[in-house]
Amino acid sequence: MLSKEEKAYCSAMTALKVEDYSTASVFFKDAEKQFAGNDDFCILQQTTDLLLAVKEEISALEKS
């Protein structure tokens, strides 16, 4: 059986594929307990989180 974290990683990758970055970020968070030591995982998780932070900043700047 797959662990909860493996299932979350699958869902995160699927979300990335359809460019749903918020969902991907949530699933990456759920998966990090098992994959925190995996370089590929860390790059994808941190890039996704950085992208979301940038989007938020853009949105704030556009509103101001």
């Binding site: 990335l16 460019e19 970055y21 994808l44 890039t47 996704t48 950085l50 992208l51 940038v54 989007k55 853009i58």
Partner: peptide
């Protein structure tokens, strides 16, 4: 944003 999206 565009570069990060492109990477992902």
């Amino acid at each position: 944003e565009s570069n990060l999206k492109h990477l992902l």
